[in-house]
Nucleic acid binder design. Sequence first.
DNA 1: ATCCCGAGGG
DNA 2: CCCTCTGGAT
Length: 216
Amino acid sequence: MRITKAAKQEMLAILEEWYRGMETALHYTTPFELLIAVILSAQCTDERVNIITARLFAQYNSPDKILELGQAGLEEQIRDCGLFRGKARNIIATCDILCRKYGGEVPADFEALTELPGVGRKTANVVLSQLFHVPAIAVDTHVFRVANRLGLAKGETPLAVEQGLMKAIPREQWSAAHHWLIWHGRKVCKARKPECGNCRLTALCLAFNTNKKTAP
DNA sequence: ATCCCGAGGG
DNA sequence: CCCTCTGGAT
């Protein structure tokens, strides 16, 4: 079974109506803060990242201040969000590059961003779309799962799903659709126990209609 | 036991 | 492709 173009457009219309205006759950006040928050969000809930960054940014809200804090100090601050040694190492290295190469600012360029340690394709796309209004679809765990379940974009890798979504969604909606899919994944189309009973998309959903009315 | 707005290394 | 890194929540 496959999802028609018309069905995909209908899904997007419902998602837009449902999640209109929903944006990131991460708290930030500057580009630098968003960059760090997104790096910290790997394998960690946004809610927990917000707890950590509230404390961290109160004192250390710029690359030079993070460098002042140092590896051990940063590890202590971010310990509770998991993967803390690698994240601390990457953030320190990234802050060093930001200071030396970009005057302490966050570069608005995909190649420049992905050269920063700890910044991969997903984080770069979040920063580009959210900070610099570049059309991009960041595929995280929620977008990947929801797009595959719905049949909006099938793919075995995040890149394949990203490319499928770019075909299925008008460019001007890329950044917004990223947030619709995330919120749908967080609130309804959950990884472990999807709430199909609360979903407005079941009539169109590939997984729901393939698995005899029960999403995997 | 599995998942959370992944990335880097082998 | 695979594996590792990691604490907290369910």
